[in-house]
Structures are given as C-alpha cells and as structure tokens.
Write a protein that binds this DNA or RNA. Structure first.
Lengths: 156, 156
DNA sequence: CCTTTATAGTTTCAAATGAAACCATTTGCA
DNA sequence: TGCAAATGGTTTCATTTGAAACTATAAAGG
C-alpha cells in the first residue's frame, strides 16, 4: 500500500460529544444568570450560592458552606469576605472553637435573598419551559443518576 | 402581627436547582477529562477542541475554528499559538486574503488526535454507561432542545 | 503537660479568562 | 482612485481561579 494512503482518522464530532455539549449548555446558562445578578445586585454566582445556602442553614461555618455549595474553601473565603464587606452576611466566631466562623445572612442579606430567589426560579422555569413534562422528569432523573455516582470518569 | 414575626423567606434549594446541578455536573466531567489530557499530552481542553475541529475540517481559519468550537477568538488565538509552537498544527496564510490563516493538523498533530479521540469516546461511554438506553435517548433530545433555542434566559 | 498532628481559614503566587484596544488587510462606495 | 468601514487576528490589561504555603487554634498521644 502507498505510504501516503489516507489514514482512517475517525475524527471526533464535537457537536455530538456529550461532555462538550453539556459544557456549552451549562456555560451559556450560567453566563446569562451571572450577568443578571452582577448587573442588578453586584453579586457574583459564588456569592449567591453562599447566600442561598445560608438562607437554608443558618450559622454554618465556611467549611460547611463549602461542602453544601461544592466550592473549594478558597472560593468560599473570598465570597464571604465580599459579602461581609457588603453587609450581607455576618461573621461571628464560634465560642467553643475559635477557628470556626459562624455565618448568617443579615437583614440586608435577607432582602437580597428574597429578591433573587424568585428570580432564580424564573430563570429555571424559562429553561424548563422548553421541555415537555416527560423530558423534564427524565432530565431530573438523569441528573440524579450522573451526579450521584462515586466519581466521574474512570478511576484508572 | 408582631414586628419580628418569622418571615416566609422561601429559600432556594440549591441541590434541586437545575442550573446549579448542570454546572456541577459539567464542571466535574470537564475537570476529569481536562486533567487527563493535560497530564498525558500537555494538552488543554481548548487546544483539544481546536484539534478536533481541524481533524474534521482541514484548512479552517481561526475565525471559523472559533465558530465551530464556541470559543471566542482570543481563546482560539492562544490555543493555536501553543499548538503551532508544539508542532501540532501548521499555520499558513491564505493566498487571496492575507489576514486569514489556514490551519491544519501536522503529522504530530494527527498522531495526538488519533490517540485522544478514542480516549474521549471512552470517557463519554463511561458516562453514558450509567444511564439506560431510554435515558440516553432522552438526554440527547433534551440537549438538542436546550442548545438550539435562540438564546437562553429571557430576552428582557 | 508538651509535642505532634489535624482542622479552619486566609494569603500568596501563577495560570486561565475576558474585554477592550490595537494592527493589518480587505471591502464598499463616493 | 482613495477613504471609511469592516474583518481577521494578536496584544494588553484587569479580573478570576486554583494550588500550595501559611497562620491560628484545637485535638491526640506520649
């Protein structure tokens, strides 16, 4: 066979590749929402996540916030610093363990929360409006399945 | 009613919020894959996307690569620079229009491609292995639906 | 005790990213 | 022609992000 015979390269079709499509979709959505929060409330996505978690679980430590939000502790530290500076979150130190902080929404924080939470739900509704009831149900299940697993990718 | 009556704050449950879940999932997947490519081939996600597109469409310009990969032109410019420096992509200038570049995989680029492409497919397979055939089909349709729309979020 | 080890959180430094400004070339059109 | 606008691409600068080093406090073991 000739040396320059066209090899069978089996190129990857990016536009049908699940990780790629997921990434594009997620980025688009996040960007739209993030821009919205940023403009209206000078609030970053990460800051909002911290606030949302504190709304449900008062008095968490930074470490616990990190677990709930799937953020790393550096990101939490930075978000909390900004939130405290903006008067949206209060930070006290835990009596028994002076390393831990005790974080809570302030009145101003609650006010923001009570405005942003419905807005977030609206974003979600608009997204889901594109799907049928069946698809919505399927998607919920699929995300459960994919997010649950021990770890994504091969362990190898 | 008392002034300090506990307000109904209706806090958002992050763990059931679609954009949040999508973002977590996508980031986890991308991170696993990116780390893999980085370690084995010193290849970033964006560089790989450029290579994948050039494998299917030889001789694209940077602008066209940007369209195919949903990356912005700055990102493409940087990825291409590294790829050219690494001898994985060749850049010629288009005869008729000297602004445009003509990008192609080199032999070395093809070699990387032919190793990485099956690896990518394996990643995808492992991911999809967690789903039933029905779920896989549903997911494909859902992504089509969500990615197609004119623009995500409200136009408002 | 008092020395190691672990935990909570912050700081620091380098790399990744995005927006805008910036060249170079080409196109549209007066 | 020749000049304004558009296009392809790179550079610059400011911001974001992540990993590792660091500080402070607490728990555990001899």
């Amino acid at each position: 066979m000739p040396a320059d015979e066209p090899h069978d390269h089996a190129p990857l079709e990016l536009e049908h590749f699940l990780p790629y499509r997921l990434s594009i979709l997620s980025n688009r959505i996040s960007q739209v929402i993030a821009r919205d929060y940023q403009q209206r409330f000078d609030l970053s996505m990460t800051e909002w996540r911290v606030m949302a978690v504190l709304a449900r679980h008062a008095g968490l430590s930074a470490r616990e916030v990190a677990r709930y939000t799937a953020m790393d502790k550096v990101a939490v530290s930075r978000a909390v610093r900004r939130l405290v500076a903006a008067g949206r979150v209060s930070r006290d130190s835990h009596g028994a363990d002076r390393r831990r902080s005790v974080l809570d929404l302030t009145a101003a924080g609650w006010a923001i929360h009570d405005t942003v939470a419905p807005l977030a739900r609206t974003h979600e509704r608009e997204l889901l409006a594109r799907l049928s009831a069946d698809e919505r149900a399927a998607l919920a299940g699929i995300l459960d399945r994919l997010l649950d697993g021990p770890d994504l990718g091969s362990e190898a």
